[in-house]
């Protein structure tokens, strides 16, 4: 079995309210194994994120299930918008 404990370096891009919560349009995160690990990391470092029902896209594709990261993956945090 390949070890994934070291994880990957990914670029996180925020949309909508997520920009305010992480206080940046994007950030680079190291040592991230998969989507679930990123969600955990975000909820520890940016508690406001877990209050939003965000969706996540990896490399411009929305993912509804967990998946492993590779180095250089671009991960978008997509909170819902309601305004009109």
């Amino acid at each position: 079995m390949e070890s994934t404990t070291t994880g990957s370096t990914i670029r996180v891009i925020a949309f909508g309210k997520a920009v305010e919560i992480i206080n940046a349009n994007s950030l680079t995160v190291e040592g991230m194994t998969d989507v679930n690990a990123l969600k955990d990391w975000l909820s520890i470092n940016f508690p406001g994120i877990s209050e939003l029902k965000i969706s996540i896209a990896v490399n411009q594709k929305v993912v509804s299930q967990n998946r492993l990261f590779e180095n250089g993956d671009e991960v978008a945090l997509l909170p819902p918008f309601s305004g009109g």
Binding site: E51, L52, S55, S64, L78, P79, P80, G83, G84
Partner: peptide
């Protein structure tokens, strides 16, 4: 609902 299966809690997102 493919993007957001469930609505967020009320009051989470302010309006314009």
């Amino acid at each position: 609902r493919d993007l957001f299966p469930d609505p967020p809690d009320a009051g989470q997102i302010p309006n314009c």
